[in-house]
Design a protein around this nucleic acid. Sequence first.
DNA 1: TATCGGCTGTGACCTCCGCT
DNA 2: AGCGGAGGTCACAGCCGATA
Length: 290
Amino acid sequence: MAKIAYCSKSLHKASRDLLDQMIGIAEDYDEKGYRLTVRQLYYQLVSRNIIPNNLSSYQRASKILLAGRMMGEVDWDVIMDRARTPIMPGEFRSMSNFVKAALNSYRKYRWEGQDHYVEVMVEKEALAGILERVTREYHVLLLANKGYSSASAIHDVAGRMEYEEENGKTCHVIYLGDHDPSGMDMVRDIDSRLNTFGCSPSVERLALTMDQIEQYNPPPNPAKSTDPRSRKYSEEFGGQSWELDALNPEILSDLLESRIQEYLDVGMYNDVIEQEDAEKGRLEKVAGRI
DNA sequence: TATCGGCTGTGACCTCCGCT
DNA sequence: AGCGGAGGTCACAGCCGATA
């Protein structure tokens, strides 16, 4: 734990209460092994109906959270910033360290011989940390679109899928996003643009769906009436929307894992892991001689 | 009919300023 | 001093009315 105070500050009661709730949520996630971003913590407050979902509300929450961290009330390790990644060339203190690192990072192509090729897309980077556990385990590419995806990203997806289709695989995009006017439209947008780039995988919305909303009953928010897509959305779903973040991380992970397993021959996958382990053993012997 | 501009949205922050 | 709102960054997206 690293609660370090760099200043002192007194908060008004409303801010104090909000900070206490944020600390509770952050520590709960930390116990489960997840580190939250500021944005993700904000969405947890929104999904619990503690604060409204708008710009000023987000800014207020992030300010109060910052105050809590600066005052040493929030562990610096429970919040992470995924947007600012340090850039540094790889370097090693010794050859043996390099060999160990190479051994640890050695992976075979795990989907060798499979009938399907799968990629996972998520609307918000805030949820990538939760889904990453599953996609790492199954060696599935995970892409955080940050709203509507970009032409570059979709073009790259199409390129990978075209290659896999040429190799006889059936391609799938598993999508997870908010149930709101824009979020619902993003699946259509991805499907349409992939078609434009000459590939036609199945693009399926794994979450959030109306069935899941009825099953797990996450708190609703008013659908943004300023969103140009709100009219069409409200005709179909009414005036309420739901955040993907409102689903428990374990539920999201389980949903994704089950869906990936539907496309994966697990026995074949485990065979590749066995081969990988055997090859690592041979590499270790070579490394020992170095 | 096609294109353009203005407005809106997505994420993940930040700074500045006026008010209490 | 603390709060709340306005506006900025960066790179994309869709929608809609105006204009060529």
